[in-house]
Design a protein around this nucleic acid. Structure first.
Lengths: 223, 223
DNA sequence: AACAAAAATTGACGCAGATCAATTTTCCCA
DNA sequence: TGGGAAAATTGATCTGCGTCAATTTTTGTT
């Protein structure tokens, strides 16, 4: 069960890229209209088909955005953590939501209604700019992702993904391999095999189930 | 060669969803800052790697937005016609463009510089709303497209695509099958075979090279 | 610590779709 | 309007990856 309250809780909004450039008094203004809820693992923020009237901003925890086709096959679209938002489709168009938002780590989520947001946009045009920045970036990511699916083999997709989450020659996965498979448009079995291949050929080395040492970055890059 | 002029040409802007809700005098205001160019088939508006400082709005003609991977494989991302725009990534973020924009049908294109657009957004917040609407829609399309690639067979992708361009039981392709293959992440050969299959099983019937009669929409929908 | 449930691994097998190659058809534009 | 180039079609072959199935490992819970 999720619990709701609409007290002023500035932290929820202050940490979010869309708003964090505003002055303190403007933030407080916005906070007055924000509804904050906590959700537990397994709960959904929304389902496909819902007509959302609000923007959901994750303040704490993790939320899995996924789609499902007619046969029930899932595709992981995005994994939200603190500062990320969702629900923009129903907010800016009048389409129904096509994705599901499932809490995978106990979360605190702020909601801003469509009407409130629209009036903020008129009042603070810089917010619009921030949102557009976020949109443009996400659009680019989505199109890159599509191109990746369209023209690269699974091995290449994994390699590219690993590189995006590598720091100091160490790749730390933020999700299970099962979710990774779904995100990369393949199966857990194939993910497993490709990881084994890469270990066998000395490109990576398993540290623990979620951490891998990159032994040969050059080779990884040209997969 | 493209020719440029920046005379006031209201038509360029008036027909564009982002601006067409504005009053005539506001339109004229905007028009003053718009640069209009004509391009011939084969010319490029921009290449991957360019740092664009402007939004490109197609007023006439067609523009092919495509990406290319390291091996030179192309993926068609979008086909722009009158009213569509491109260049938003470089405009709202500071990333370099990752796609190519090639004119495939003699085109007239308007350009609005970053600075001008930003000041319009502050002056007319409703423009921002329109752009966000467009972004949200496109984001949804891109994510739908990704999911389509991730979980559906080529036959299904074709079927879904055909349905999007069907009117009165007639599907009219807006691009060559070669481009369609690139758009759907497959090869011309496979496209050809699947179309033949669908004709053989009485689902569609070729009218001319770009037009197909939908004989059995139900079956097409469940492919 | 112990258990159940979820996740991950590995093998065997089959198929959708890519690739290569050879025509045929369509589309321009000179 | 004719000729050359691009696009489309069709066949033959090969392969990456999905599917099914059986364990094994990891994880979270009491």
């Amino acid at each position: 069960m999720s619990s709701t309250c609409n007290h002023s809780y500035r932290g929820c909004v202050a940490g979010v890229p869309i708003f964090n450039h505003l002055e303190a008094e403007d933030l407080d203004e916005i906070m007055k209209t924000v509804h904050s809820s906590t959700y537990q693992k397994g709960e959904h923020l929304y389902h496909a088909g819902d007509t959302l009237g609000a923007l959901y901003i994750v303040h704490k925890g993790k939320v899995r955005i996924y789609r499902m086709n007619e046969e029930g096959k899932e595709q992981l679209v995005r994994l939200l953590s603190a500062g990320d938002f969702t629900g923009e489709l129903a907010l800016f168009t009048n389409k129904k939501e096509e994705a599901y938002a499932e809490v995978v780590e106990d979360a605190q989520v702020c909601r801003i209604t469509q009407d409130d947001l629209h009036s903020f946009l008129m009042q603070y045009p810089t917010i619009a700019l921030k949102i557009m920045q976020e949109f443009a970036t996400r659009l680019d990511t989505a199109e890159t992702q599509t191109a990746l699916f369209a023209q690269e083999r699974v091995e290449t997709r994994i390699a590219k993904y690993l590189l995006t989450c590598t720091e100091n020659n160490t790749a730390r996965l933020t999700m299970t391999k099962r979710d990774l498979a779904s995100y990369l448009g393949t199966t857990p079995e194939t993910i497993s095999r490709r990881f084994s291949d890469m270990e066998r050929s000395g490109i990576i080395q398993k540290q623990d189930s979620r951490t891998f040492l990159i032994l040969d970055q050059v080779q990884l890059e040209e997969l």
